[in-house]
């Protein structure tokens, strides 16, 4: 009984990790260009809100 329960829990955790990993990779695969654009846009907006310079202007190596 104990063995079966351990197997079940481990199986569920492994499956969850599998779903998360594959789901995440699939998400990256299906919308990579759009995500990159969105990420850049978000970074710009966050910088604007914080009164900081746009991280995607050429003078900026990056922001912390």
């Amino acid at each position: 009984m104990r063995k079966a329960l351990t197997l079940l829990v481990s199986g569920l955790v492994a499956a969850l990790l599998g779903v998360l990993a594959l789901g995440g990779v699939a998400a990256a695969a299906t919308s990579s260009a759009e995500e990159a654009k969105d990420a850049a846009k978000s970074a710009r907006e966050a910088a604007q809100k914080a009164g900081k310079p746009d991280p995607f202007t050429p003078e900026i190596y990056g922001t912390r």
Binding site: L20, A21, G23, G24, V25, A27, A28, A29, S31, S32, A33, E34, E35, A36, A39
Partner: peptide, 10 residues
């Protein structure tokens, strides 16, 4: 997961 696909398209 967002390391996949070149850091999700970066």
């Amino acid at each position: 997961p967002d390391l996949a696909l070149g850091g999700a398209g970066r």
